[in-house]
Amino acid sequence: MRRFTALLGVPLILLAACARTDGSAPGGPGGSADRWAAFQQRADEVADAWRSAAGRPQWLAGYAPLQSPTVLPGDPGFTSETEQAFHAGWYETQLELPTETPADGTVSFPDGTLAVPLISAADAYATIRQGDPPQCPPDQSTPGRPGPDPTATSPAGAASDGPDDSVASGQLGGCQVLTVTAVTLGSVDLLTSRGTAQVPAWLFETTELDTPVARVAVADSVNIATPSPEVDQATDLTDFVVAQDLTSVADVDLGYRLGVGACDSDITPFVQEYADAVVVSGSVVRTGEVCTDQLLLHPVTVTLDEPIGGRTVLDAVTGQPLRLVPVG
């Protein structure tokens, strides 16, 4: 029996493909007419279930973010150390961050606007700062940053300075932090339940990055919960895999990642468009071989007939809306 449990960030095959959206079967052995018919039937079921999902009217009228509230609005010019610091949330600042709550802000959707309460710069900073690097070699330590912890990897708290401990081997990474030098209230593009919106955000300038780190300034209390449509198990999609998340949303180009097995081949994206939704998935050819117990994230792209606009992207297997997780 095949089981998929481990997530690997690097897919086996970095191959992008496009699916047809004109009703014909995608090309190649993975896109047979039978598979296309099975996918279309399932896509219709998922789209119908989405339209009747509890809470959907509120979700489409309010504010429901579909990506992380921490955004890089431009090219950060990452090094390996600064990228690690960004993802780990290692920041420091000598600024006196404003603690006052600003007046209500405005989220600008493609179909209208919404007044929303905001959080202070200090509260926003508290959400992006997740702590300090776990270990710093002594020659890299600076005031305000942690030095080496001689008890971190030793049993019963005993000190260790041998060559096999994690500090000596570098297993716990470096000491780089991101130094905040200024903060302003601005806005950032964010994928929401009503399409890509302009959302109020605190913009943190840092010494180490070429673009600010934007943290959405909208109070969490206004976030609308994502509806969960009720769909039957996809018994007719035995050769289809789950779309895990979105990687890019730009006009008619849609990128997403499929969860595939190590022995799967002929990975083919499928997409079906509706006026209010886009349903995606992907088919694979199973080899029947005994494979390693892992799930690989395989990126694909499709070209839509119409711009995505405010339509929700749904996975055909689970029926659930997909979130945007930019990669690369």
Rank of each mutant, 00 (worst) to 15 (best):
P146C: 07
G147K: 08
P148S: 08
D149V: 04
P150G: 12
T153M: 09
T153V: 09
P155N: 02
G157Y: 08
S160P: 00
D161S: 10
D161F: 13
G162D: 14
P163K: 05
P163W: 02
D165L: 07
D165R: 13
S166C: 08
S166Y: 06
V167G: 01
A168C: 10
G173I: 06
G174K: 07
G174A: 07
L178C: 10
T179Q: 13
T179I: 02
T181G: 12
T184E: 15
S187Q: 14
R194E: 08
T196F: 12
Q198M: 07
P200D: 05
F204C: 09
T207C: 00
E208Y: 04
D210G: 13
V216E: 01
V218L: 03
V218S: 00
D220F: 00
V222M: 10
V222I: 14
V222C: 10
N223D: 14
S228D: 09
S228L: 10
E230Y: 03
V231E: 05
V231D: 07
V231G: 06
Q233N: 10
A234E: 04
A234T: 05
L237P: 05
T238E: 15
T238M: 14
D239F: 04
V241Q: 01
V241R: 00
V242K: 04
A243P: 02
A243N: 02
A243Q: 06
A243R: 00
Q244R: 13
